[in-house]
Design a protein around this nucleic acid. Sequence first.
RNA 1: GGUCUCUUAGUAUAACGGUUAGUACAACGGGUUUUCAUCCCGUCAACGCGGGUUCGACUCCCGCAGAGAUCACCA
Length: 479
Amino acid sequence: MKAITRFAPSPTGYIHIGNVRSAIYPYLVAHQTDGKMILRIEDTDRERYVEGATELIEDTLKWLGLDWDEGPIVGGPNEPYFQSERKDLYLEWAQKLIAAGRAYADPTPSEKIDEYRRECAEKKVPFLYRNFRPENPPEWEPGMPIRFKTIPKAYEWHDEVMGDMHTGPEVLDDIILIKKDGYPTYNFAHIVDDAEMNITHVMRGVEYLSSTPNYLALYEAFGLVRPKLVSLPHILAPTGNKKLGKRDGAKSVTEYRDDGVLAEAMLNYLACLGWNDGTEQEIYTKEELIEKFSLDRIQNSGARYDETKLLWVNGQWIRRIFDTQGARALYDRTVNFWPEAAANFSEDYRIRVLSIIYDRLKTLSDLKTMTGYFFEEPELDVKMITENKFLKKLSEAEIEDLLKKAIVALSDIQDWNAESLQETLNNLLAETGKKPAELFSLVRISLSFAPFSPALNLTMEVLGREVTLARLNKVARSI
RNA sequence: GGUCUCUUAGUAUAACGGUUAGUACAACGGGUUUUCAUCCCGUCAACGCGGGUUCGACUCCCGCAGAGAUCACCA
């Protein structure tokens, strides 16, 4: 059976780490059955609506490679995909329920409802609107809410993640279907849309688990077949036991893109947070996730978000792309992450820099801080040499002498390449009797004045003869 | 408070009722001619508690404790 899933966010802001899983899993489920995923924008709360949020959502999905088969932009047979544009439909469905005696116009002013609620609180009994249901509800007219007329009873159902569930009649109530502003509630709109769109898997956060019996009652009232229900546990904030939210500083998913995290890594990490396929595999491509994903292996307790592990996964992906797709493929991802001065150099040169530094990157934005000396003269800082833990044992005269010998030896090289450079350094080591730590540190620091850099021979090869010798001479003069 | 859910190392997780409870991140130590990183090797570290059932329980059952969700004209 082909799965039809949906991601149905409210346009109230950006998508963050805590809520993007409810887009990833529907995508995977849809694609493993050659089905489709629908993007539906649930914009029925006019007060929380944020201009531009829909675009942020679309941007995030596109970046992660979670293309939707129906929805905004791409269209589809169930248009429109904005709930605000489907108002008439919900009213129609609600009126069917009124006609069947399963819904009614609610004339009770909200102050009165608050009063009921207070009474119940005083008596320490749970408040259920159905206990205050008006006996002769008026004819519905615009401006009145419509409530479901529930039939309290026990429900049993299966949740693909939580397992077999059951509740008693006490959890069922006359929920609002249509608000007095004419917009449907989430509780109602999603039932209608899921039915209209033939959704087979309803995947959403666990917070909806408690309301599920009310949804089951609605399916029943309409004679609908229940879709598969999938409750996704929350992603927890790094500290405490609360779900990760914007208040905990949950960054938007696309902010990680701007910080140099690869989409592959993000998808990989998030898909595996609270899910695994039972093997010890850690790195998955999107295709592998589609192939191996299964709902019943989703963890049923919350999983804590761990940025350190995300960065580890990202490092794995950076190396994987370089190793399997080549330097050019990785380079294509890095265009926005180079230091400014890199613009003065050829693409070819930047690719060569990337090729010797890529295995040190945790994020692409590390390029900014790690490659500066390849593109501009490093600021000379003699202390880095004189206070280096290997070099401080040598006198300034010894340092100067060693540097000069290095300059002479390197100047003699015919073919300036990694092998000949290494050979020259090795010979110099034998000739001077210095330790590798001394010679290598001295040359490395003189060239970069950076806390760390790639292998010395590779660094010199990329910098080239002219720059290498110029920098060494400059340092030799300053000692 | 009612209802529902969850509980393996710091974190993410694995384990037909029979394993020295596995793996990864992190931490710590070591190796790879300098640094940082990669890579490799090693160390530390867990079945929430209490009862059952069983020859045998992380695994099944019952309590307890702790944590979470929900009880809106928000989703």
